[in-house]
Computed example of a mutant assay.
Amino acid sequence: MLREFDLLNYAIDWPELVHAVIAIGVSLAIAALVHRLVFSVACRLADRTETPVDGLVLERLRSPTRWAATAIALAMAAEVDAWAAWIWSSVGSLAVPALLGWIAYSLVKAFAAALEYRAEISTNIAAARSRRTRIAILSRTATFLVVFLTVGLVLFQLPGVKQVGATLLASAGLAALAVGAAAQPALKSLIAGLQMAITEPLRLGDMVVIDGHTGRVEDIRMSFVVVRMWDERAAIVPTSRFLDNTFENWSRASELLTGPVYLHLDPAAEVGPIRAEFERFLAEQPAWDGRTGKLLMTEARAGSVELRMAVSAATISDLFELRAAVREHMLDWLRRAQPAALLHSSVTTGSS
Protein backbone atom coordinates (compact mmCIF):
# COMPACT_ATOMS: atom_id res chain seq x y z
CA MET A 1 0.00 0.00 0.00
CA LEU A 2 2.90 2.40 0.74
CA ARG A 3 4.28 1.98 -2.77
CA GLU A 4 1.53 4.26 -4.00
CA PHE A 5 3.16 7.14 -2.10
CA ASP A 6 6.67 6.57 -3.55
CA LEU A 7 7.21 9.48 -5.99
CA LEU A 8 10.01 7.59 -7.75
CA ASN A 9 7.38 5.31 -9.28
CA TYR A 10 5.81 8.24 -11.12
CA ALA A 11 6.91 10.61 -13.87
CA ILE A 12 6.17 14.04 -12.40
CA ASP A 13 4.40 16.46 -14.70
CA TRP A 14 5.36 19.78 -13.13
CA PRO A 15 2.58 21.88 -14.70
CA GLU A 16 -0.01 19.40 -13.40
CA LEU A 17 1.67 19.42 -9.99
CA VAL A 18 1.55 23.22 -9.85
CA HIS A 19 -2.10 23.12 -10.91
CA ALA A 20 -2.83 20.58 -8.13
CA VAL A 21 -1.07 22.71 -5.52
CA ILE A 22 -3.02 25.78 -6.60
CA ALA A 23 -6.34 23.88 -6.64
CA ILE A 24 -5.75 22.34 -3.23
CA GLY A 25 -4.43 25.61 -1.76
CA VAL A 26 -7.38 27.65 -3.01
CA SER A 27 -9.84 25.04 -1.74
CA LEU A 28 -8.19 24.93 1.68
CA ALA A 29 -8.14 28.72 1.90
CA ILE A 30 -11.83 28.96 1.04
CA ALA A 31 -12.67 26.22 3.54
CA ALA A 32 -10.65 27.95 6.29
CA LEU A 33 -12.30 31.29 5.52
CA VAL A 34 -15.81 29.84 5.53
CA HIS A 35 -15.12 27.93 8.76
CA ARG A 36 -13.76 31.03 10.47
CA LEU A 37 -16.67 33.17 9.26
CA VAL A 38 -19.31 30.65 10.37
CA PHE A 39 -17.79 30.19 13.81
CA SER A 40 -17.30 33.93 14.25
CA VAL A 41 -21.01 34.53 13.62
CA ALA A 42 -21.98 31.54 15.80
CA CYS A 43 -19.80 32.74 18.69
CA ARG A 44 -21.31 36.23 18.51
CA LEU A 45 -24.77 34.74 18.70
CA ALA A 46 -23.71 32.47 21.57
CA ASP A 47 -22.37 35.44 23.53
CA ARG A 48 -25.81 37.02 23.47
CA THR A 49 -27.44 34.07 25.22
CA GLU A 50 -27.95 34.05 28.98
CA THR A 51 -26.04 30.82 29.62
CA PRO A 52 -22.61 29.61 28.43
CA VAL A 53 -24.10 26.37 27.11
CA ASP A 54 -23.95 27.43 23.46
CA GLY A 55 -20.33 28.46 23.90
CA LEU A 56 -19.47 25.06 25.37
CA VAL A 57 -20.96 23.27 22.37
CA LEU A 58 -19.16 25.51 19.87
CA GLU A 59 -15.79 25.07 21.55
CA ARG A 60 -16.14 21.29 21.45
CA LEU A 61 -17.02 21.38 17.74
CA ARG A 62 -14.39 23.89 16.62
CA SER A 63 -11.49 21.47 15.97
CA PRO A 64 -13.38 18.55 14.36
CA THR A 65 -15.36 20.86 12.07
CA ARG A 66 -12.14 22.61 11.01
CA TRP A 67 -10.68 19.30 9.88
CA ALA A 68 -14.00 18.32 8.30
CA ALA A 69 -13.89 21.54 6.29
CA THR A 70 -10.35 20.63 5.24
CA ALA A 71 -11.57 17.22 4.05
CA ILE A 72 -14.44 18.82 2.13
CA ALA A 73 -11.99 21.23 0.49
CA LEU A 74 -9.76 18.36 -0.58
CA ALA A 75 -12.76 16.47 -1.99
CA MET A 76 -13.80 19.54 -3.96
CA ALA A 77 -10.28 19.93 -5.34
CA ALA A 78 -10.37 16.27 -6.37
CA GLU A 79 -13.25 17.07 -8.72
CA VAL A 80 -11.10 19.40 -10.84
CA ASP A 81 -7.58 17.98 -10.50
CA ALA A 82 -6.16 14.48 -11.05
CA TRP A 83 -3.41 14.81 -8.41
CA ALA A 84 -5.91 15.97 -5.80
CA ALA A 85 -8.18 13.10 -6.82
CA TRP A 86 -5.31 10.64 -6.29
CA ILE A 87 -4.56 12.05 -2.83
CA TRP A 88 -8.24 12.03 -1.86
CA SER A 89 -8.74 8.46 -3.09
CA SER A 90 -5.81 7.36 -0.91
CA VAL A 91 -6.86 9.04 2.35
CA GLY A 92 -10.56 9.80 1.90
CA SER A 93 -11.79 6.31 2.77
CA LEU A 94 -10.04 6.57 6.15
CA ALA A 95 -10.58 10.27 6.78
CA VAL A 96 -14.36 10.31 6.30
CA PRO A 97 -15.31 7.75 9.00
CA ALA A 98 -12.62 9.13 11.33
CA LEU A 99 -13.93 12.69 11.01
CA LEU A 100 -17.56 11.62 11.37
CA GLY A 101 -16.63 9.70 14.52
CA TRP A 102 -14.71 12.70 15.88
CA ILE A 103 -17.67 15.00 15.27
CA ALA A 104 -20.08 12.53 16.90
CA TYR A 105 -17.71 12.15 19.87
CA SER A 106 -17.44 15.93 20.25
CA LEU A 107 -21.23 16.28 20.08
CA VAL A 108 -21.67 13.72 22.85
CA LYS A 109 -19.12 15.50 25.06
CA ALA A 110 -20.57 18.92 24.25
CA PHE A 111 -24.14 18.02 25.11
CA ALA A 112 -22.96 16.16 28.23
CA ALA A 113 -21.10 19.29 29.38
CA ALA A 114 -24.14 21.46 28.63
CA LEU A 115 -26.49 19.19 30.57
CA GLU A 116 -23.97 18.98 33.41
CA TYR A 117 -23.91 22.77 33.64
CA ARG A 118 -27.70 22.93 33.83
CA ALA A 119 -27.68 20.29 36.55
CA GLU A 120 -25.15 22.26 38.60
CA ILE A 121 -27.24 25.44 38.60
CA SER A 122 -30.43 23.58 39.57
CA THR A 123 -31.79 24.41 43.02
CA ASN A 124 -33.40 20.97 43.39
CA ILE A 125 -30.57 18.86 44.81
CA ALA A 126 -32.31 15.51 44.29
CA ALA A 127 -33.22 16.31 40.68
CA ALA A 128 -29.68 17.58 40.02
CA ARG A 129 -28.16 14.34 41.31
CA SER A 130 -30.55 12.31 39.19
CA ARG A 131 -29.67 14.29 36.09
CA ARG A 132 -25.93 14.14 36.72
CA THR A 133 -26.08 10.36 37.17
CA ARG A 134 -27.93 9.82 33.90
CA ILE A 135 -25.61 12.20 32.07
CA ALA A 136 -22.51 10.40 33.35
CA ILE A 137 -23.71 6.89 32.47
CA LEU A 138 -25.41 7.64 29.15
CA SER A 139 -22.58 9.86 27.89
CA ARG A 140 -20.02 7.14 28.63
CA THR A 141 -22.21 4.58 26.86
CA ALA A 142 -22.62 6.83 23.83
CA THR A 143 -18.87 7.57 23.80
CA PHE A 144 -18.04 3.87 23.85
CA LEU A 145 -20.42 3.16 20.97
CA VAL A 146 -19.09 6.07 18.89
CA VAL A 147 -15.45 5.04 19.39
CA PHE A 148 -16.24 1.37 18.75
CA LEU A 149 -18.12 2.07 15.51
CA THR A 150 -15.55 4.60 14.31
CA VAL A 151 -12.61 2.27 14.85
CA GLY A 152 -14.54 -0.53 13.16
CA LEU A 153 -15.37 1.60 10.12
CA VAL A 154 -11.77 2.80 9.80
CA LEU A 155 -10.30 -0.67 10.14
CA PHE A 156 -12.64 -2.17 7.57
CA GLN A 157 -11.30 0.30 5.00
CA LEU A 158 -7.95 -1.51 5.16
CA PRO A 159 -7.58 -4.40 2.69
CA GLY A 160 -6.01 -6.74 5.25
CA VAL A 161 -8.84 -6.25 7.71
CA LYS A 162 -11.39 -6.88 4.96
CA GLN A 163 -9.76 -10.23 4.27
CA VAL A 164 -9.85 -11.12 7.95
CA GLY A 165 -13.51 -10.15 8.02
CA ALA A 166 -14.27 -12.39 5.06
CA THR A 167 -12.48 -15.27 6.77
CA LEU A 168 -14.47 -14.74 9.93
CA LEU A 169 -17.73 -14.61 8.02
CA ALA A 170 -16.90 -18.04 6.59
CA SER A 171 -16.98 -19.44 10.12
CA ALA A 172 -19.65 -17.12 11.47
CA GLY A 173 -21.16 -19.68 13.82
CA LEU A 174 -18.00 -20.38 15.78
CA ALA A 175 -16.97 -16.73 15.68
CA ALA A 176 -20.31 -15.62 17.13
CA LEU A 177 -19.99 -18.11 19.99
CA ALA A 178 -16.42 -17.06 20.73
CA VAL A 179 -17.18 -13.34 20.64
CA GLY A 180 -20.32 -13.82 22.70
CA ALA A 181 -18.44 -15.74 25.40
CA ALA A 182 -15.57 -13.23 25.46
CA ALA A 183 -17.85 -10.19 25.51
CA GLN A 184 -20.23 -11.49 28.19
CA PRO A 185 -18.62 -9.57 31.11
CA ALA A 186 -18.47 -6.36 29.04
CA LEU A 187 -22.08 -6.74 27.91
CA LYS A 188 -23.16 -7.47 31.49
CA SER A 189 -21.44 -4.30 32.70
CA LEU A 190 -22.97 -2.29 29.84
CA ILE A 191 -26.48 -3.55 30.63
CA ALA A 192 -25.94 -2.98 34.36
CA GLY A 193 -24.82 0.60 33.70
CA LEU A 194 -27.85 1.31 31.51
CA GLN A 195 -30.14 -0.23 34.11
CA MET A 196 -28.49 1.95 36.76
CA ALA A 197 -29.19 5.06 34.65
CA ILE A 198 -32.83 4.13 34.03
CA THR A 199 -33.91 2.80 37.45
CA GLU A 200 -31.58 5.05 39.53
CA PRO A 201 -31.22 3.01 42.72
CA LEU A 202 -28.40 5.43 43.55
CA ARG A 203 -27.08 8.68 42.16
CA LEU A 204 -23.92 10.73 42.27
CA GLY A 205 -23.58 12.28 45.71
CA ASP A 206 -25.88 9.80 47.48
CA MET A 207 -24.88 8.48 50.90
CA VAL A 208 -24.96 4.67 50.75
CA VAL A 209 -24.10 1.70 52.92
CA ILE A 210 -23.05 -1.50 51.16
CA ASP A 211 -20.85 -4.40 52.26
CA GLY A 212 -20.01 -2.53 55.46
CA HIS A 213 -18.83 0.58 53.60
CA THR A 214 -20.52 3.92 54.30
CA GLY A 215 -19.81 6.90 52.09
CA ARG A 216 -20.78 9.19 49.23
CA VAL A 217 -21.11 7.95 45.66
CA GLU A 218 -18.25 9.75 43.94
CA ASP A 219 -18.35 8.15 40.49
CA ILE A 220 -20.49 5.64 38.60
CA ARG A 221 -18.86 3.63 35.84
CA MET A 222 -20.21 0.82 33.70
CA SER A 223 -18.44 -1.85 35.72
CA PHE A 224 -17.93 -0.30 39.16
CA VAL A 225 -19.04 2.44 41.55
CA VAL A 226 -16.63 4.55 43.63
CA VAL A 227 -17.82 5.15 47.21
CA ARG A 228 -15.78 7.78 49.08
CA MET A 229 -15.82 7.21 52.86
CA TRP A 230 -15.45 9.81 55.61
CA ASP A 231 -11.72 9.09 56.08
CA GLU A 232 -11.16 9.70 52.33
CA ARG A 233 -10.71 6.01 51.50
CA ALA A 234 -12.41 4.88 48.28
CA ALA A 235 -14.36 1.63 48.10
CA ILE A 236 -14.60 0.21 44.56
CA VAL A 237 -17.86 -1.75 44.40
CA PRO A 238 -18.98 -3.70 41.28
CA THR A 239 -22.06 -2.17 39.69
CA SER A 240 -23.86 -5.51 39.72
CA ARG A 241 -23.78 -5.61 43.54
CA PHE A 242 -26.07 -2.58 43.70
CA LEU A 243 -28.55 -4.36 41.42
CA ASP A 244 -28.32 -7.88 42.89
CA ASN A 245 -27.93 -7.11 46.61
CA THR A 246 -29.65 -5.02 49.25
CA PHE A 247 -27.99 -1.75 50.23
CA GLU A 248 -28.94 1.39 52.15
CA ASN A 249 -29.39 4.74 50.42
CA TRP A 250 -29.67 7.48 53.03
CA SER A 251 -30.37 10.26 50.52
CA ARG A 252 -32.64 8.57 47.98
CA ALA A 253 -35.33 11.27 48.03
CA SER A 254 -33.62 13.91 50.17
CA GLU A 255 -31.06 14.25 52.96
CA LEU A 256 -33.69 14.84 55.62
CA LEU A 257 -32.93 12.18 58.22
CA THR A 258 -33.67 11.41 61.85
CA GLY A 259 -30.97 9.88 64.04
CA PRO A 260 -30.92 8.53 67.61
CA VAL A 261 -28.66 9.27 70.56
CA TYR A 262 -28.76 6.59 73.28
CA LEU A 263 -28.09 6.99 76.99
CA HIS A 264 -27.78 3.97 79.28
CA LEU A 265 -28.45 5.17 82.82
CA ASP A 266 -29.15 3.92 86.30
CA PRO A 267 -32.85 3.14 87.01
CA ALA A 268 -32.77 5.87 89.66
CA ALA A 269 -32.30 8.55 86.99
CA GLU A 270 -34.96 11.29 86.87
CA VAL A 271 -36.23 11.30 83.30
CA GLY A 272 -38.21 14.56 83.53
CA PRO A 273 -35.26 16.92 84.12
CA ILE A 274 -33.20 15.03 81.55
CA ARG A 275 -35.93 15.50 78.94
CA ALA A 276 -36.23 19.20 79.78
CA GLU A 277 -32.48 19.76 79.45
CA PHE A 278 -32.42 17.83 76.17
CA GLU A 279 -35.23 19.93 74.68
CA ARG A 280 -33.63 23.17 75.88
CA PHE A 281 -30.24 22.34 74.43
CA LEU A 282 -31.71 21.04 71.15
CA ALA A 283 -33.70 24.23 70.58
CA GLU A 284 -30.45 26.23 70.68
CA GLN A 285 -28.70 24.18 67.98
CA PRO A 286 -28.65 25.75 64.47
CA ALA A 287 -28.24 22.30 62.87
CA TRP A 288 -31.63 21.12 64.19
CA ASP A 289 -34.39 21.54 61.60
CA GLY A 290 -37.26 21.33 64.11
CA ARG A 291 -38.89 18.19 62.66
CA THR A 292 -38.02 15.64 65.35
CA GLY A 293 -36.87 16.14 68.92
CA LYS A 294 -38.11 13.51 71.36
CA LEU A 295 -36.74 11.67 74.37
CA LEU A 296 -38.26 8.27 75.16
CA MET A 297 -37.37 5.45 77.52
CA THR A 298 -37.04 2.56 75.09
CA GLU A 299 -35.72 -0.11 77.48
CA ALA A 300 -35.87 -0.87 81.19
CA ARG A 301 -33.76 -3.64 82.69
CA ALA A 302 -32.88 -4.72 86.19
CA GLY A 303 -29.68 -2.70 86.32
CA SER A 304 -30.19 0.03 83.73
CA VAL A 305 -32.61 1.97 81.57
CA GLU A 306 -32.17 3.12 77.98
CA LEU A 307 -33.15 6.62 76.87
CA ARG A 308 -33.41 7.34 73.16
CA MET A 309 -33.13 10.95 72.04
CA ALA A 310 -34.30 11.30 68.43
CA VAL A 311 -33.10 14.38 66.53
CA SER A 312 -33.39 15.48 62.90
CA ALA A 313 -31.43 17.71 60.54
CA ALA A 314 -31.61 18.96 56.96
CA THR A 315 -28.43 17.20 55.81
CA ILE A 316 -26.58 14.03 56.76
CA SER A 317 -23.47 15.91 57.86
CA ASP A 318 -25.53 18.25 60.05
CA LEU A 319 -27.24 15.24 61.63
CA PHE A 320 -23.92 13.60 62.45
CA GLU A 321 -22.59 16.76 64.11
CA LEU A 322 -25.89 17.35 65.94
CA ARG A 323 -25.93 13.84 67.39
CA ALA A 324 -22.32 14.23 68.55
CA ALA A 325 -23.13 17.59 70.18
CA VAL A 326 -26.22 16.22 71.97
CA ARG A 327 -24.33 13.16 73.21
CA GLU A 328 -21.44 15.22 74.56
CA HIS A 329 -23.64 17.85 76.23
CA MET A 330 -26.02 15.39 77.89
CA LEU A 331 -23.20 13.34 79.39
CA ASP A 332 -21.55 16.52 80.68
CA TRP A 333 -24.85 17.75 82.11
CA LEU A 334 -25.53 14.39 83.80
CA ARG A 335 -22.10 14.43 85.46
CA ARG A 336 -22.97 17.80 86.99
CA ALA A 337 -26.73 17.55 87.63
CA GLN A 338 -27.38 13.83 88.18
CA PRO A 339 -24.09 12.01 88.81
CA ALA A 340 -25.98 9.14 90.41
CA ALA A 341 -27.77 8.47 87.11
CA LEU A 342 -24.55 7.47 85.40
CA LEU A 343 -23.63 3.80 85.35
CA HIS A 344 -20.30 2.95 86.95
CA SER A 345 -18.47 -0.30 86.46
CA SER A 346 -15.45 -1.32 88.45
CA VAL A 347 -12.64 -3.36 87.01
CA THR A 348 -10.62 -5.51 89.37
CA THR A 349 -7.42 -7.28 88.55
CA GLY A 350 -6.07 -10.17 90.51
CA SER A 351 -2.44 -10.30 91.55
CA SER A 352 -0.45 -13.33 90.44
Rank of each mutant, 00 (worst) to 15 (best):
R66C: 08
A178P: 00
G259D: 01
E255V: 14
A78S: 13
E306S: 15
G160V: 10
A268V: 12
L319G: 02
A77S: 11
I220L: 12
R252Y: 09
R336M: 08
R129H: 03
A77Q: 09
V80F: 15
R323H: 03
I191P: 03
I103N: 01
E299G: 13
A46W: 11
A235W: 06
E232L: 14
R280K: 05
L263G: 04
P64F: 14
A313D: 05
M330P: 05
R132L: 15
L319C: 06
A268K: 07
W102I: 00
R118Y: 13
V146K: 03
D231L: 14
H19Q: 10
R291N: 03
A104T: 07
R228D: 05
S351A: 12
G212K: 06
L194D: 00
R221V: 10
A276E: 09
A337N: 00
S89Y: 11
P339I: 07
L169Q: 00
V96H: 02
I316P: 01
V226S: 15
A29G: 15
T239K: 08
V146D: 00
L17I: 03
V326A: 10
L149Q: 04
A119S: 12
A71C: 08
R275Q: 11
F156T: 02
D219C: 15
A178K: 00
R252E: 11
A183F: 02
H35S: 06
S351I: 03
K109V: 09
E200Q: 15
D231G: 08
H19V: 09
A113R: 13
G101R: 02
A104E: 02
S254P: 04
L307E: 03
L28V: 11
Y105A: 05
G259T: 13
G212V: 10
T292A: 04
E277S: 11
A110P: 10
E120Y: 10
R308T: 02
A192Q: 12
F148W: 02
K294S: 09
F281D: 03
G152K: 00
L149T: 12
R134I: 01
G303F: 03
L256V: 15
K162V: 06
P97G: 13
S240I: 11
K109L: 06
D231T: 12
L153C: 14
A313M: 08
S223W: 01
V217M: 01
A302G: 08
Y10S: 01
I210H: 08
E284H: 06
I121A: 08
P260Q: 04
A268D: 07
R280D: 11
A253I: 13
A29S: 10
L343Y: 06
D13N: 15
R216N: 10
V26T: 14
S171D: 01
L149G: 09
L243R: 08
L155C: 10
Y262K: 10
R335S: 13
I236G: 04
D47S: 13
E284I: 04
T150N: 03
E116A: 13
W288D: 09
L145E: 04
N245D: 10
V38Y: 09
G101T: 10
N245F: 14
V237S: 08
L58M: 07
W67Y: 13
L158S: 12
L99S: 05
H19A: 13
W102V: 03
L37E: 05
I103V: 10
L99H: 11
L342C: 10
G193F: 15
A178L: 03
R233N: 07
W88F: 14
H329I: 08
W333T: 04
A341S: 11
S312E: 07
S317F: 06
A310R: 11
D244I: 04
P52C: 07
R131G: 03
